[in-house]
Design a protein around this nucleic acid. Structure first.
Length: 546
DNA sequence: GCCGTTTTCGGCCCGACTGTTTTCAGTCG
């Protein structure tokens, strides 16, 4: 887990603890800070080093101090103290669906129940029967929640790349429902957050009932959790929760805006609306009783005097103030991509695989592809793409496509065998037994870094990025433990390094690589000019100008 | 605990849904 995610989790748990203790406003303050820190596009260490913790929305003196304490010691004493005050089992009760802090506190103070096991025992012994507020349905609901938790553990947030194929398939299925006019995914998925806790589907239809009926019957849907006139909540496999909302077409833009969030972005928007004598909610922008906007998002933002804001930037970090001054710089989009700098096939891949990937590149209108022809495996051994593979693919595509030969190298002194392989540029990758260090002078092109789990330790990130920026190298960003953690993407961009977006050449339509990488690059605020493979030629520059 | 063309105190988003309720409390997003 990244530093940011770790501290966010601590603050979130602090909020739960304060909730159970009956505290009134502090819990929301800690949650707001947790959300803010989680959605940061750079590492907390970098923010703290600039002494800018207080500039993070929701972080004041007290939370900034606790953040510094965490960065220095790895824990927060206040959090530790609260953990001693509240029985740990109560937090598990708060985490059960349908149960919150108020109920957990009542169990604790009125019934001396301190955890899920005791709760289950109390229900079994009939101790909840007749207690005010606990009717038969509520008790059955708690029993079911306890059983579900025992069976599958707490619900986990899914990495965006894992959620992508699930969400895409579900969206296609919903669009196939006859009475559905329009359907879009909203929420953290649309904002390209690193992980998603649930999926938000938004649909326009004049007849919600048949939509809910058909949705409930989809093969992916395992259980219907609740259903009202405008909203249905279901569970898929892996306990992934999906909220489906049906709105009228005249409110679609407002609803899409509202359910895309982020929560903090929306709070600031609402405040802005109020200051201008307007009211904004999921049904539109209103002046008194009159709806002045709602059909499209552009219309909603315009009614507030703002340019449209891309979902990936809706994090309440100054984007609203920027949009008040005019259109925001355009973020990189899929059609901007002009090539792939890092096509890495297995050494044992048949020649047809390279041919297929290059054909895909031609079909997409790409102008160049960098094919890895040799490199170092994880275990340190050298691999080379077979000559037959190399001969087959490029020849056919050569007329419309520049094919570059790429050699992957690890940090440290170059292996003599690899150094002898002719290539157009080298790609640096932290593989092999060599100790980590900044790229040496022989690297002319692309830095492909991994941070966090499975990659380089996060603490080294800043040094690598600085070295990459100084040498005009591009830094690859995208899903997976081997690629750049998206929290570093903004740091890399702001340091002056180009980003490189992996394009998933030759993969199926459900492959998450390209859309997720694009989302991360956009979340970092990258314009087409700042993305190396959005340039018309393989725009990699080394110290010698290549 | 945070925040401010409602700034140094007094507020703190709001609507949907459920269950247990004769009008509301708790949870959720």
């Amino acid at each position: 887990m990244s530093t940011n995610a770790e501290l966010a989790a601590i603050f979130r748990e602090t909020a739960d603890l304060l909730d159970v203790l009956g505290e009134r406003f502090k819990p929301e303050a800690y949650r707001r800070a947790a959300r803010s820190i989680e959605s940061l596009t750079e590492d907390l260490r970098a923010v703290a080093a600039r002494d800018e913790l207080r500039a993070i929305p929701g972080v004041g003196d007290a939370i900034a101090e606790k953040t510094r304490e965490f960065l220095a010691t790895g824990h927060v004493a206040y959090h530790d103290r609260l953990l001693k005050e509240v029985p740990p089992g109560l937090l598990e009760i708060v985490g059960l669906p349908g149960l919150g802090p108020k109920t957990a506190r009542r169990f604790w103070t009125e019934l001396a129940i301190e955890g899920p096991a005791e709760l289950a025992a109390a229900i079994g012994a009939g101790r909840l029967t007749g207690v005010k507020g606990f009717g038969p349905k509520k008790i059955a609901q708690i029993r079911a929640a306890l059983a579900a938790r025992a069976a599958s553990g707490p619900a986990r947030r899914l990495p965006l790349e894992v959620a992508y194929p699930i969400a895409t398939r579900l969206l296609a299925a919903v669009r196939g429902i006859p009475t559905v006019e329009r359907a879009e995914l909203a929420g953290s998925f649309r904002r390209a957050q690193e992980t998603v806790g649930d999926l938000d589907l938004l649909v326009t239809s004049t007849r919600p009932e048949p939509v809910f009926d058909a949705f409930s019957e989809l093969p992916e849907v395992r259980q219907v959790r609740l259903r009202g006139p405008t909203k249905e909540t279901v569970l898929l496999d892996r306990d992934l929760q999906v909220d489906l909302r049906v709105v009228e077409p005249a409110a679609f833009g407002a609803a899409l805006q509202y359910f895309t969030g982020s929560k903090d972005h929306n709070v600031t928007l609402r405040t802005l609306a109020r200051d201008r004598g307007l009211k904004i909610n999921e049904y539109g922008v209103f002046r008194g009783e009159e709806r002045v906007a709602g059909r499209t998002e552009e219309e909603v933002y315009a009614a507030l005097g703002l340019a449209w804001i891309p979902p990936e930037l809706r994090v309440d970090r100054g984007e609203i103030a920027a949009a008040a001054h005019g259109p925001l710089p355009p973020l990189v989009t899929d059609p901007d991509l002009a090539g792939e700098l890092h096509l890495h096939l297995s050494p044992r891949a048949p020649p047809a695989e390279l041919a297929a990937a290059l054909a895909d590149a031609v079909a997409r209108g790409y102008r160049y592809v960098g094919v890895v022809v040799a490199g170092t495996e994880r275990d340190g051994t050298i691999f080379r793409l077979p000559p037959a593979t190399l001969a087959a693919g490029p020849a056919r595509a050569a007329r419309t496509l520049e094919v570059h030969r790429v050699v992957e190298v690890g940090p440290g002194p170059p292996d003599p065998e690899l150094a002898a392989v002719p290539c157009d540029y080298r790609l640096l990758r932290p593989v092999g037994p060599a100790p980590p260090g900044p790229p040496d002078g022989s690297v002319r092109g692309l830095v492909h870094l991994g941070f966090g789990e499975g990659g380089r330790p996060v603490a080294e990130g800043a040094a690598w990025i600085e070295a990459a920026a100084r040498r005009h190298l591009a830094v690859e960003v995208g899903p997976g433990p081997e690629r750049l953690d998206s929290n570093w993407a903004r740091t890399a961009r702001e340091a002056g390094a180009s980003l490189s977006v992996p394009t998933g050449l030759g993969a199926s339509g459900l492959d998450p690589t390209r859309p997720v990488a694009l989302g991360f690059a956009r979340r970092a605020g990258a314009t087409p000019a700042e993305v190396a493979n959005a340039r018309p030629t393989a725009g990699l520059r080394g110290p010698s100008g290549r």
